[in-house]
């Protein structure tokens, strides 16, 4: 008996709000998917039915997964059930999985290799949607945001219309640092380039399946009780340069306090937010999101202008 062809699986990941469902619709409209009858597995934290309802091709079979216990390992049972049903149906050649924004892609990959249907499914591509306007912010706090990029075969940078060229350039460098091999599509409104999907090549991974990546992007909060010397502060910022992705908070300069914000290298100042300082019990309180630098180096840079992590 001829061996049955494996069912191709596409994973669509990315943080909530990055535009996954829009990209999903764009993918389903592509000739690449238009002719086949893919099954959809939709897994979203706390939004059961919402994403499913937004899928334009409502005729497609959808499996919606959302458990009270909200983690991949706990949703594994439901995933395996869905995969078993798809395998048993015998009429699907392709499955698209829209993963929750907090999913670790390695977990989903492991589900495909596990259980009674192991071998029936083959990962064809892992597509990660990145929100150009918020990725650097989210990735510092939400661990899976960076690992979703690391494990992707293709990255769709969405909402590029919301950021300037300088910020896009920083993001491009950051994504290339996290995953130099993935094909990139910079876009807005979830539109993907024609033939983009054909360019996606599944790369076998030699790395460990451990999702805990070295922390390339991280956030550190600083406080200071004494006034900050403006010149020393500017010097620290200049020294760190592009290592700072974002900076936000009150700085009590010797010549007066200000709420300082740095995004994509651009600095702006506003009136200080008093509640922030009250809560931290410090006139200077700010958070820095940085990348490609040792935490200790960052701490040292701001320690030189009197700020402690």
């Amino acid at each position: 008996m001829a061996q049955e062809k494996a069912i191709e699986v596409w994973i669509l990941g990315g943080y909530l709000g990055a535009g996954k469902t829009t990209v999903l619709n764009a993918m389903l409209a592509e000739p690449f998917f238009a002719d086949c009858n893919p099954a959809l597995i939709i897994n979203e934290f706390g939004r059961l039915g919402v994403d499913g309802a937004l899928v334009e091709r409502q005729e497609l079979r959808r499996f919606e997964i959302n458990k009270g216990s909200m983690f991949c390992i706990c949703t594994k049972t439901d995933f395996l059930k869905a995969l078993a049903e798809i395998a048993a149906a015998g009429r699907y050649r392709t499955v698209l999985i829209e993963a929750t924004g907090i999913a670790e892609p390695v977990d989903i990959e492991s589900f495909l290799k596990d259980g009674p249907h192991a071998g029936r499914f083959q990962l064809r591509g892992n597509v990660c949607i990145v929100d150009a306007a918020h990725f650097t912010q989210v990735a510092a706090y939400l661990k899976p945001a960076a690992s979703q990029v690391r494990w992707a075969d293709a990255i769709v940078v969405n909402k590029c219309d919301l950021v300037g060229e300088q910020e896009r350039a920083v993001l491009r460098r950051l994504l290339a640092e996290l995953n130099p091999a993935a094909v990139l599509c910079e876009t807005s409104f979830g539109k993907i380039y024609p033939d983009f999907l054909q360019q996606v090549v599944r790369r076998p991974r030699q790395e460990s399946m451990q999702p805990c990546a070295p922390e390339k992007i991280f956030a550190v909060s600083f406080t200071a009780q004494s006034p900050v010397d403006p010149a020393a502060f500017e010097k620290a910022l200049a020294r760190l340069g592009g290592k700072i992705l974002r900076f936000k908070g009150n700085v009590a300069f010797a010549d007066g306090p200000a709420y300082v914000e740095v995004i994509g290298g651009r600095q702006s100042r506003k009136e200080p937010q008093l509640r922030l300082s009250q809560q931290a019990a410090a006139p200077t309180v700010f958070t820095v999101i940085a990348w490609d630098i040792e935490k200790e180096q960052l701490r040292q840079a701001f320690a030189e202008c009197g700020c402690q992590a």
Binding site: Q137, Y141, S221, R246, R275, T287
Partner: peptide, 20 residues
Amino acid sequence: LHLLGTDIFMKMFDEAESVH
């Protein structure tokens, strides 16, 4: 997270005091 949803991860930077 149940009360606020995944917006909490954005707010940890944008509105840390409200998360606290």
